[in-house]
Design a protein around this nucleic acid. Structure first.
Lengths: 188, 188
DNA sequence: GTCTATAGTGGGATAGAC
DNA sequence: GTCTATCCCACTATAGAC
């Protein structure tokens, strides 16, 4: 689905991601990007067909990084769900504009490498052991991160405490699921 | 903080909300709004100082509606958290563009009626009995709604099942809090 | 309360020369 | 691979007449 980019194309994507992360989505224009590369905007179109392709390529690099971070968080974790939540939060708060580009809109799945979305989701599925619970926990983490980024929690609120409450709630639920599964596979 | 609007100003805000809800945020321009009202864009500025004021006024009407819906959901509910989650989801899915305008960005608190944000949050605080848990549940509901609106759950996924998992997790946690509170106020 | 005219800014993208 | 020149679009907002 996704046409491979030339080396120059990848340079452009890297510069675009920097621009987005440093100055936000409104700064990500073909003109500003060209400025940063020391060329003129029309020259970009020799390497990329359009802006949508550029954004999809940025999103893909974000998913690669996120997947790696989530996989690392799961290694040797004594509390997988808590570790994963920490990695999720760290990634999103370290890359707020990138995170929003990745998560705020329908995924341009046709323009992403095959399997990348699944790879990013795999650690969470492993940590929860249940797809529905994974989705619910995903929603919680996504919501917390967006509330933090949009400064929507009350001024005096301690986000860490809210994270802790949510993680605890889902850990309990995950253990309940675990017991159910074990019971179900054992004779009565 | 917020200057009261003239009757004509309120008509304009109502038309703007319709436009936003029906055609999305990119359609909410002063020109399109004027078209809908049968006037020219510059005429709008006789009734509203700028677009930010218009958006804040739309947001305020959304909060009024949401607060009323949440309060109704809590009346006579046997499962307050589940009832509130249902009302939250119903509101957001019925008004997707409005919801995003209300929730995706820092609140223009200076331009909103005093107390409106607190009134909207009150039912959730009542249902959870704990501010941190309320924030965590808020994040879950917010995240679920955004994942649904952005079609970010896998194609075959059943959002209802994920909602159910999350609600169950937080209900358990709320009951644990309840017991703790009771215990704490009773002699050992 | 509405209009016309217009300023000022910015965007994505193409054609064709070098 | 880069350039200049350019098209066409859209937006917020103001000034001043009626």
């Amino acid at each position: 689905m996704a046409e491979p980019l030339s080396p120059r194309g990848r340079q452009i994507v890297a510069a675009a991601r920097e621009l987005l992360e440093q100055e936000g989505p409104t700064a990500l224009t073909m003109r500003r990007l060209a400025d940063r590369l020391g060329i003129r905007a029309p020259s970009l179109y020799k390497h990329l067909p359009d802006k949508a392709t550029l954004e999809a390529a940025i999103i893909a690099t974000g998913f690669e990084d996120a997947a790696a971070a989530f996989e690392a968080a799961l290694d040797d974790a004594t509390e997988p769900l808590a570790s994963l939540a920490g990695a999720y939060r760290t990634f999103a708060l370290a890359h707020p504009h990138l995170y929003r580009l990745m998560a705020d809109q329908p995924l341009p799945r046709d323009r992403l490498p095959a399997g990348l979305e699944d790879r990013t989701a795999a650690p969470l599925l492993h940590a929860t052991g249940d797809p529905q619970l994974a989705r619910a926990f995903f929603a919680f983490a996504h919501g917390m991160v967006l509330l933090e980024l949009a400064r929507r929690l009350p001024a005096g609120a301690d986000p860490q405490a809210a994270w802790h409450e949510g993680i605890a709630a889902f850990q309990t639920r995950a253990k309940a699921h675990g017991r159910q599964s074990v019971k179900a596979t054992q004779p009565p």
